[in-house]
Design a protein around this nucleic acid. Structure first.
Lengths: 113, 113
DNA sequence: TTGCGTTATGCTCAGCTGTATATTACGATA
DNA sequence: TATCGTAATATACAGCTGAGCATAACGCAA
């Protein structure tokens, strides 16, 4: 009845090595798709390049097929491109995330304290 | 189809001041009910007394009615007793937590990556 | 060949969170 | 009155995580 208490939470997808996909990681993938490089994606999120690189590396190592393709040198210094497997990973996470948000919203109305 | 990826997550109940009830807090309340003091409850969880006290204080301040009753001095030096409101808080959280676990379990089977 | 921007990687620093320690107040009981 | 075990609270310490630099490799373009 009371609206002052609400159920909150987080979800992520784990693989054998630990966290595979979470909210921040998926947003990072979307920024990479948008900007074409880890550097620009990290900057757009106010995240350090080092941290972003580690996240991307973790995702790429855990995914059956790489989530991004990286190239070094060349025109513009190189860049990073989202793969089809990356697109699927993004869609898969958002799908689960959306259902989770609905669960939280619905379950919050049943808290009576 | 693949079982190597699973959906994980956490849930907690938030009040106006932030986190009100989470997994660790509820277990702490149960230990207090079992041992009769914050000191013994914290020790049983290998948690520092200071941390345990802060969690209890946070819960008590955010709850409409105190979650525990604390007494100082006297036989045995005092102690802490769970209130009826505390019992309700525990039950409320476990109920949401149980449903959440079911959600995770079911949703994990639908991850296809 | 030189310059440029990106990936790749190591090292150090700051902030946060919880631990450990120390001290005081409290009140029933011996 | 002295003792005991707890609540209450301040201060200092340790570990972890991410930020911030610094540096090297790379390959296309001028």
């Amino acid at each position: 009845m009371e609206k002052s208490y609400r159920l909150h939470g987080r979800v992520w997808i784990e693989g054998p090595e630990g966290t595979f996909l979470g909210y921040g990681r998926v947003v990072l993938l979307e920024r990479i798709r948008e900007h074409g490089s880890i550097t620009a994606a990290a900057r757009s999120m106010e995240m350090s390049y080092r941290h972003a690189w580690k996240l991307v590396d973790s995702m790429n190592r855990q995914s059956r097929q790489p989530v991004v393709e990286k190239s070094t040198g060349g025109k513009g210094g190189g860049g990073t491109r989202l793969t089809e497997a990356g697109e699927q990973a993004i869609a898969c996470f958002w799908s689960a995330h959306r259902e989770f948000k609905a669960f939280l919203s619905h379950r919050s109305t049943e808290i009576d304290l």
